[in-house]
Design a protein around this nucleic acid. Structure first.
Lengths: 149, 149
DNA sequence: GTAAGACGTAACTATAATAGTTACAACGAA
DNA sequence: TTCGTTGTAACTATTATAGTTACGTCTTAC
């Protein structure tokens, strides 16, 4: 199983808001770059708004960043779009037999490892800010424009 | 989304094989401890067998460890049961617009981070052997038997 | 040899999440 | 007051999980 693309869509949206601050970012416009339906964008944007990462103007429309890029980590986005429940990246089978010594104790032992593994993954996301990502992205774009891509 | 319980079931099965080496481990017996259907056990056991972690006797039945506990890491089990495709823990949206600078470059930039995050998670699993897990488990069981649980 | 028990696998089901789509009320700005 | 947009409900198709029944095949023991 995979972590929902809501995460990558969220990062894509924030990157667009950062790189093209002058444009009018309607859900239709954003959907054009992401390659999906405007409603999918509105749903992700709703998550970003709720998490305080983006502002969305009702009526006239258009989204903007609600925070500096330095103050948004990939973990913030990941948590905002609600792709993995806290400490529950791994699904543990639910009815181990309490009458069996192994069944009665496997969960708490294995859970330790699972939480640690998940934390390591999320630690990597926490260490990358949208500023860094957008900088790499901008360099990538510039590189291709110069004919090196 | 969550990583399939095939992983936790696989660990549970191997723990049983290790802790009770004398028993006749049929899928029915294992299913009793895991709390599921024998067919589910056979399917997971099939993965473990294919990966060289367990032996399963046809006809008379019964599973045994195919390797020393020290030589089985949690990552081996995780890979054996095929819960996450290599480098694809995260699902990236699939049609970013190549005509948009961001759409054309977001994937390769974001993919870097995703792979790194996944690797960190798997690194934790790689660092834990079934020997270590079974030792902790055995201590846990012994502790409860002594009335401290 | 043959009967009993167990594995391997196919086939079907229910459940849940994802992601796309249409539709529409509410809102804001020109 | 009209136009474009947001927020959200409702529906769909697709996919994965996990449980279940069923059955052919195999091993062992009698």
């Amino acid at each position: 199983m995979q972590i929902s693309s809501r995460f990558s869509i969220g990062v894509h949206i924030l990157s667009l808001l950062a790189i093209r601050p002058q444009d009018h970012h309607t859900s239709e416009w954003l959907a054009g770059s992401v390659g999906t339906n405007p409603v999918v964008i509105r749903r992700v944007l709703g998550h970003l708004k709720k998490a305080g990462l983006a502002n969305v103007k009702a009526g006239s429309g258009g989204a903007t960043l609600a925070r500096e890029l330095d103050e948004i980590t990939l973990l913030d986005v990941y948590r905002a779009v609600d792709v993995v429940e806290e400490g529950r990246l791994f699904h543990m089978h639910e009815q181990p037999n309490p009458a069996c010594p192994v069944g009665a104790n496997i969960e708490q032992v294995l859970r330790l490892m699972m939480v640690k593994a998940q934390a390591a993954m999320e630690g990597v996301l926490a260490a990358v800010t949208m500023r860094e990502l957008v900088d790499v992205l901008a360099r990538e774009i510039e590189g291709k424009r110069a004919g090196n891509g």
